[in-house]
Simulated scan of single mutants.
Amino acid sequence: MSREETYYAAINWNAIEDVIDKSTWEKLTEQFWLDTRIPLSNDLDDWRKLSQQEKDLVGYVFGGLTLLDTVQSESGVEAIRNDCRTPHEEAVLNNIQFMESVHAKSYSSIFSTLNTKSEIDEIFEWTNTNEFLQKKAEMINEIYRNGSALEKKVASVFLETFLFYSGFYTPLYYLGNNKLPNVAEIIKLIIRDESVHGTYIGYKFQLGFNELSEEEQQQMEDWVYNLLYDLYENEERYTELLYDGVGWTEEVKTFLRYNANKALMNLGFNALFPDTANDVNPIVMNGISTGTSNHDFFSQVGNGYLLGSVEAMKDDDYLIGM
């Protein structure tokens, strides 16, 4: 082989093609965390005071979240990796894939702290046989397997920015009521990650969308809204199953519609539902804030545990003219 031929190109971080790749990489690495640094056992007193119905809800919620993070870590990133526009984008996706595995593992840490082995087995049996969970996993994974490059990005954004939030509601609600703060701390860290994942992949979608013809753009937009309708219909049924017993169903649906709008915004589209942040339970909206918790280093490590000072990237940092 002559010296002039290139068999494999080395990634060069000193030659950035898209500055969003670099800024996203820096943000994700700066906010790196592991569940082992969160003292979940400190929540056991709160856990023992919950009713059995509430304990079942928490278990099923985290079972569902584990399933979705498993889909994303095993199938989601691989599905969009082949359409990378830059080598740096692939590096960012590697980071995202690893953190999705950290998220899935974190739920198991919660289970091992709060639940017995038989309870954990029952939670996973419920998760793996629940018709609504399985349907949304199938809908998303089918797109990952057979969709176009842009459709796969839409599925990823909808999963990251919309479908997780029926589960996130529960720990955020308890956090707002001064219960299970360390469990909720893990969820806040996950939300912080998912916010970056959703906006970054949405930005990459917008780049590809803008290269389509006007007719192709309209077809894609119609497909996006139809998919959202189908996912939301299933998510309503899932929410009713989870929350009718505790009386939170309508509040959770409002939260879902608000986050569905956020997912559309990540893709560069207009909101579909009338719901805004002002319509969401303020206790939950306060919990969704990812500011630093006031934790002492030797007893608790909250989401102030960073490798550097991190400023949140605004959603419009990822928006481009459409």
Score class of each variant (00 low, 15 high):
44 L>M: 10
124 F>Y: 15
45 D>G: 00
41 S>E: 13
99 M>E: 15
76 G>T: 02
94 N>R: 12
120 I>E: 13
72 Q>W: 09
124 F>R: 09
110 I>W: 12
56 D>N: 11
50 L>D: 07
43 D>R: 08
71 V>G: 03
60 Y>A: 07
93 L>G: 03
53 Q>C: 11
91 A>H: 09
114 L>G: 01
103 H>V: 00
121 D>R: 00
96 I>F: 12
44 L>E: 11
109 S>T: 00
98 F>N: 09
125 E>A: 00
109 S>P: 00
64 G>A: 08
116 T>G: 03
87 P>E: 09
55 K>Y: 07
111 F>L: 08
113 T>S: 04
110 I>F: 14
113 T>I: 10
51 S>A: 08
60 Y>G: 02
83 D>W: 09
60 Y>M: 14
96 I>T: 01
122 E>N: 08
84 C>F: 05
121 D>A: 01
74 E>Y: 11
70 T>L: 06
88 H>E: 08
102 V>D: 08
80 I>T: 00
118 S>V: 02
55 K>M: 13
62 F>A: 07
121 D>T: 01
127 T>M: 12
118 S>A: 04
62 F>D: 06
89 E>D: 11
127 T>Y: 05
51 S>H: 04
75 S>Q: 13
123 I>N: 05
76 G>R: 02
46 D>E: 05
106 S>K: 00
41 S>M: 07
117 K>H: 09
58 V>I: 15
74 E>W: 07
120 I>W: 13
85 R>D: 15
99 M>C: 05
130 N>F: 10
125 E>M: 03
100 E>A: 00
86 T>Y: 12
80 I>D: 07
115 N>I: 11
113 T>Y: 13
64 G>R: 15
42 N>H: 07
102 V>W: 11
57 L>T: 03
80 I>N: 04
65 L>R: 12
43 D>H: 06
108 S>G: 03
43 D>G: 01
48 R>T: 13
115 N>V: 09
122 E>L: 07
52 Q>T: 11
83 D>E: 14
104 A>E: 08
81 R>E: 15
88 H>F: 03
42 N>W: 08
132 F>V: 03
111 F>W: 09
112 S>N: 06
42 N>R: 13
72 Q>F: 02
